[in-house]
Amino acid sequence: MSVRVGVVVFPGSNCDRDTAWALGLAGAEPVELWHESADLGGVAAIVLPGGFAYGDYLRAGVIARFSPVMRAVAGFAAAGGLVLGICNGFQVLAEAGLVPGALLRNRGLRFVCREVAIAPERLDTPFTRLVGERRPLRMPVAHGEGAYYADPATLAALERDGRVLFRYVAPDGTPALDPDDRANPNGSLRGIAGVTNAAGNVAGLMPHPERAAEALLGSADGLPILRSLVAAAGERAAGAFVVTGRRVLAGDGGVEGGRR
């Protein structure tokens, strides 16, 4: 049984179809979640895709956070559900306070679209568990407001608690900690490309793993990130089944494995 992963569609989302396509390649069954509905349709995980939700004329993500679907997403996240925000999705999560920090205008004050390399800081998260090893992953960025910013105390806490999910790195894997490093495409502090919330179930990522899901398009390095999410979501869905089914199955430890 494939894992149902929701893809939120705001008016102005423009990576929703790409994300659904790539989630399909990662083994999931993508489900559209319309912005006006708070019904999450029983999905096992949620992705907030890239784009320009509501036009982003005021500030990226600032209006999207007030939509009905975002109230539901916040509840889903509070209950431990897995949420990944990509690009504009990251901006929406940050505006909604579901991940720390903010995404400021790029250092060069221009939109930047190019391939970058990022490396995972940890391999034991729901978003990186199938990446395999700490290595540079090549995938595109495409944004005007992607410079990660947080105050020094927050940055210190993120580093201390292992909540920096990805950093921009040079092709040889050296982290681009300096905002002026050429390998840091937007001036992000400490080279941060992705972070998680304190509980580790909500992540924001500026680069686009869904655009790096097929070798034909130049890189398949993003696919393990989506596969990680799908696998983790599948286990949680199965785990939920075990919990509700325990009365019947008498807590048999083999049941969870049997579901997979």
Partner: peptide, 14 residues
């Protein structure tokens, strides 16, 4: 010029 343009969206760009 082209770094200012999104040239990957829709994931068809070979």
């Amino acid at each position: 010029v082209y770094e200012q343009y999104d040239h990957h969206v829709q994931t068809n760009t070979v």
